[in-house]
Amino acid sequence: MQVKVIENVLKLNDEVAMLNRSTLRDAGVFTVDLIGGPGCGKTSLLEVTLRELAGTMRIGVIAGDLATTRDADRLAKWSQQVVQINTGKGCHLDANQVRQAIAQLDVNELDLLIVENVGNLICPVGFDLGQDVKVGMFSLAEGDDKAAKHPYIVAQSSVLLLNKMDLLEHVPFDLDSFRNDVRSLNPDVQLLEISVMRGDMSPWLNWLTTHATRRIAEAT
């Protein structure tokens, strides 16, 4: 006998994500889900972000990895509110894991929370964690076809970061082709071309400051 269902498969995850979103917004926290492949520079980006913005806002991080606490250890130099989630074999974070991590933070003492998702351009995209925005991260070292090959992260992101622009003279990367693929998939996304290594991050820091400041103002 066939029983009609027609339900969102990720309904249970999404219900917890809504709880996370409510908890964080009630506390006036602007939350980012940072998604990028392994080695694109996510943790380095966060190190510099924390260093540059620590004086102007209170920032927490939830770092997701299969194993080790290396990312959390690196970031703990800049913030006392850092939680590491080890997923074991899991290739993405889910809303339940983030809820448990939020419980370890004092969200009333935060203005900005960045979730550094597991290094993966595919699996994390489809799971709502309760964030305000998704930020996708690519790097020049990965090749200029990666936006076209990973349409989901491009379509879902409010901001896309293209890191390692310092390599442009040294690797075969067609910047126009990459930009065209991004525009085709998501004409509304902001593409920020940065170099964490050189410290060329002002577009990212400005964007983050603007949105976190807006959330702080809404909460007061």
């Binding site: 006998m1 066939q2 029983v3 269902v5 027609i6 969102n8 498969v9 085709s184 004409p187």
Partner: peptide, 21 residues
């Protein structure tokens, strides 16, 4: 035009189940 954006391409639904009673 070589620019076209995906629409309604990320759904994930359980449509139905079969059961034996």
């Amino acid at each position: 035009c070589q620019a076209a954006r995906p629409v309604e391409c990320d759904h994930l639904r359980l449509l139905s189940i079969d059961i034996d009673d």
